[in-house]
Amino acid sequence: MPDDSLAEGVVARDEIAALAELFDRFEFALDPLSREADEAESQFNDQIENLFESRVKPALPEHSPVSLPVFRRHVCHLCREFLRKNRP
């Protein structure tokens, strides 16, 4: 099934699809203590931070309440929705 449930944004839908794959590998890991889950979480966090610093922060209005942790939680939420619709 094509992953066509997202419209484009400052963060592209392909990037969300890739982040959702990582999110799936740690948030819903059957063994939360596995090395794979640990590595996926670390990659996910690195990519979120990179996205935030390089593209999101510059696009935010002055005094925006959107911090890195807030952005991260929004992405997590989008990943949940993405997985529910595309990887049931």
Binding site: D4, S5, L6, A7, E8, G9, V10, V11, A12, R13, I16, V56, A59, L60, P61, S64, V66, F71, H74, V75, L78, E81, F82, K85
Partner: peptide
């Protein structure tokens, strides 16, 4: 709320 267009929206 995030500014509109920051993240792709679910259709």
């Amino acid at each position: 709320a995030l500014p509109r267009g920051l993240l792709p929206e679910m259709r």
